[in-house]
Design a protein around this nucleic acid. Structure first.
Length: 641
RNA sequence: GCUGGUGUAGCUCAGUGGUAGGGCAACGCACUCGUAAUGCGUAGGUCCACGGUUCAAGUCCGUGCACCAGCUCCA
């Protein structure tokens, strides 16, 4: 059989096949044989243990290719399992894939792994790696595979074999004494595994099922070069330095109080200033776009939540209490409140769209283990709005929303966004409320709006919530992590349950469409993201303290006070460091507090009636008149840089 | 909620069953200072909470709470 391999430079190799991958590599270049990790054939990664059976586009992967890393990491996972098997012969192995930046393996053993154990396992891995054990691929029949693992008492593997599709070839990889059910691909031998490190151990369920065995998951990372491993560990440290929980504490922004309970944030004075800046901008931006601000109560009677369906579907996440023989609910969402306001009078089609917005603080009971700083809390403020509109207003409204979300992100320095469109599972329509035509109209208007704005959108089949399709926006932060922020959701449920209506041009009463949307998502979470994005160095317009005046000694304190007063009068958030310390000390404190401008005043400045400016960004900037500095700072604030 | 880890002064962290410690911060004194930490001194503790073991518990055991890493969940 002739096999044609098309190389990246469009050259075509004609080979007699099927042939081992190594032979194909050698046909391209003998030299590459030493450096090749795997090959790609028509998008599929084949390792050097495989055979080439078909023609296609062919590419050789070396340690410079991104794809090779996942091969390396997957192999490192096997090496780790091998080491664990050596140290814990009774261990049962589940899954051990490569993941972003590393790999893990889920393992069942009686005792629990300690950090010390990880050190031992890692040492064993190093020892085994030096043995340059080749990875050897084997094929077995389904029955032999099941028997083999049954004999080894590898229960998870037996279960897994039973679940593989009938037609699938069952392959194994053997490395030293460790044999694993595995489709590959793998590196040639363990000698390639040099730069790895075991990181943490955590619980995980077999098949991610809470009712099944809980296993121990060991996470590790693996790289081709020690230098890359080092760089990765530095990157982790960087991320740690940006941790909003740590910065929130250091910069006096916010904190959690054990006495108050988990998942409840306290906003300190500086954090409150930051929040206010964001809220003020938000309110202004919404008024400009035709939103009406409303405020609704934090608790209301259970009946309302029965009407909305929350008591039936969302009860376990709600805080409720009894008063006057009534159940009251602390609101987990703002929708019912906004609907009540909408319904205060009978709306005409001429009144629509009606956009009701609220910075609505909601409380949801979240399982304790899910709480995480400001990113996942029990009490948070949604930048919520509900848009009541007619069918022919849909596309316009959604278009405006997507643009609004994009503008809002840009103001805060996020320009890299991804968008997901979640639609219903068309094979299982009964799970969802609403008529086909509503779903189709909603989806069509979402798509049309996305097209108009020129966004690319990822379609997520079956990811819609039961009451309507939605668009979610994710941003990418300064160190490449993505976070979900905006959500734009259709709701076919609440208009029915509350009998929300408007009178159409034909005099008929109709249900309006309700679009539920939040752009920041949660203010707490957004500020957490913002803090990590800027590593605590907020742009001037957001900085809690914008300038701090540093008198050189106590002789210049009075002048310093005068300067502070002038800066404040001009609208700047300025403080005085009146401490009896040297300039170096005060600068260090201001730097640690990440204050954008440090204003030094001494004899020279007092005499001239000016100031010396040091900026966080570029250090000492020399003498300024107060007016010149103010111009510059106010300009910077106005531009939101 | 589950698995594992952690909880000691405002912060950050030491602490071997036998009198509770360092650094930073705070406060006082001296210095009166020019671009990332001046020196000396003083004060500061429910060792997360509640039980238990022990002559004796920050330390060992149990329960609860909070936090951390994951898992799970995320109308």
């Amino acid at each position: 059989m002739q096999i044609d391999l098309i190389l990246p430079d469009e050259r075509v190799l004609n080979l007699e096949g099927p042939l081992p991958v190594d032979d194909a590599i050698a046909a391209v270049s003998e030299g590459l044989l030493r450096r090749a990790i795997a090959v790609e054939l028509d998008g599929e990664i084949l390792d050097r243990h495989s055979e080439i059976k078909t023609s296609g586009r062919f590419r050789i992967l070396t340690n410079k290719d991104e794809e090779s890393l996942s091969v390396l990491r997957h192999s490192t996972a096997h090496l780790m399992a091998y080491a664990v098997q050596e140290l814990y012969p009774e261990a049962k192995f589940a899954f051990g894939p490569d993941v972003e930046d590393g790999f893990y393996y889920d393992i069942l053993v009686d005792e629990s792994f300690t950090p010390d154990d990880l050190v031992k396992i890692e040492a064993k891995m190093k020892e085994l790696a030096k043995g340059k054990h080749p990875f050897i691929k084997k094929i077995m029949s389904r029955q032999d595979a099941a028997d083999y693992f049954a004999e080894k008492q590898q229960d998870f593997k037996v279960e897994h074999v039973g679940e593989l599709p009938e037609e699938e070839e069952i392959s194994f990889y053997e490395v030293g004494e460790f044999v694993d059910l595995c489709g590959g691909p793998h590196v040639a031998d363990t000698g390639m595994l040099k730069a790895f490190k075991l990181r943490t151990v955590a619980g995980a369920y077999w098949r991610a099922d809470e009712t099944r065995e809980q296993l121990q998951r060991i996470y590790g990372t693996s790289w081709f070069k020690a230098k890359d491993l080092e760089a990765y560990l530095v990157r982790l440290e960087e991320a740690e330095k940006r941790d909003h929980r740590k910065l929130g504490q250091q910069l006096g922004l916010f904190g959690m109080k054990e006495e108050a309970g988990g998942g409840l944030a306290f906003w300190y004075p500086k954090g409150t200033v930051l929040r206010e800046q964001i809220e003020n901008w938000w309110k202004q931006a919404h008024r400009e776009r035709g939103y009406d601000m409303v405020v609704t109560p934090h608790i209301f009677k259970g009946d309302l939540w029965r009407t909305s369906g929350h008591l039936d579907f969302y009860a376990e996440n709600m805080y409720t209490f009894e008063q006057d023989e009534q159940t009251y609910v602390v609101k987990p969402m703002n929708c019912p409140g906004h609907i009540l306001i909408y319904q205060d009078d009978l709306k005409s089609y001429r009144d629509l769209p009606q956009r009701l917005a609220e910075l609505g603080t909601v409380y949801r009971y979240e399982r304790s283990g899910t709480l995480h700083g400001l990113m996942r809390v029990r009490g948070f403020t949604q930048d919520d709005a509900h848009i009541f509109c007619t069918p022919d207003q849909l596309v316009d409204e959604v278009t405006k929303l997507i643009e609004f979300s994009r503008d809002l992100h840009a103001i805060f320095g996020f320009t890299e966004l991804t968008t997901e469109l979640s639609v219903r599972d068309s094979a299982n329509k009964s799970k969802y409320i609403g008529e086909d035509e509503e779903w189709d109209a909603a989806e069509a208007s979402l798509m049309e709006a996305v097209d108009r704005v020129g966004l690319s959108v990822k379609r997520m089949e079956g990811e819609a919530v039961f009451y309507g399709p939605k668009i979610d926006v994710k941003l990418k932060d300064a160190i490449g992590r993505s976070w979900q922020t905006s959500t734009i959701q259709f709701d076919f449920n609440l208009p029915r349950r509350f009998n929300v209506e408007y009178v159409g041009a034909d005099g008929q009463h109709k249900h309006p469409y309700i679009i539920h949307r939040a752009l920041f998502g949660s203010l707490e979470r957004f500020i957490g993201i913002l803090t990590e994005h800027h590593a605590g160095e907020f742009p001037l317009w957001l900085a809690p303290v914008q300038a701090i005046v540093l008198p050189l000694s106590e002789h210049f304190r009075d002048y310093g006070e005068k300067v502070v007063e002038e800066l404040r009068k001009a609208g700047l958030r300025a403080d005085l460091d009146a401490k009896d310390e040297k300039l170096g000390y005060k600068i260090r404190q201001a730097e640690l507090q990440k204050i954008p401008y440090m204003i030094v005043v001494g004899a020279k400045e007092q005499e001239a009636g000016g100031i010396t400016v040091r900026s966080k960004k570029s250090g000492d900037e020399g003498s300024f008149s107060i007016a010149d500095f103010l111009n510059r700072a106010l300009d910077e604030i106005a531009n939101k840089h």
